[in-house]
Amino acid sequence: MLTLECPYCGVMADETELSPGYEAHLKRFGPGASPEEFEAYMFARKNPKGVHFERWRHSYGCGKWFLAARCTATLEVFGTYPAQVSEPPADIIAKIQARRPDWQPDWKATK
């Protein structure tokens, strides 16, 4: 029974108020995508023991989707942030690295 802070309404929400949406920051591949791209988009999910980015919806609260960075092994939550980003914001990365100095993003920053 996790608690996550909804970044929209500021509530520390119980897991019973939330719906899971699994991995965050997936890039959608539609018509024209290669079989490999589409397979990766549909099926290839990370399953890390450690830092992970997830989608959650405050279903029984404000109804907003948000994203959470947390450790799947210790359940520590590094932060939550609005869903309207294509990669985790710098302050979240900084929070993760403060707690997990060895952790490095596995994507190329767009800026």
Binding site: S19, G21, R28, R55, R57, S59, K64, W65, A83, Q84
Partner: peptide, 13 residues
């Protein structure tokens, strides 16, 4: 309804 909101909030925001 949740499906629609998912796409509106997370893909075509």
């Amino acid at each position: 309804h949740a499906w629609m909101e998912d796409w509106l909030q997370c893909e075509w925001w």
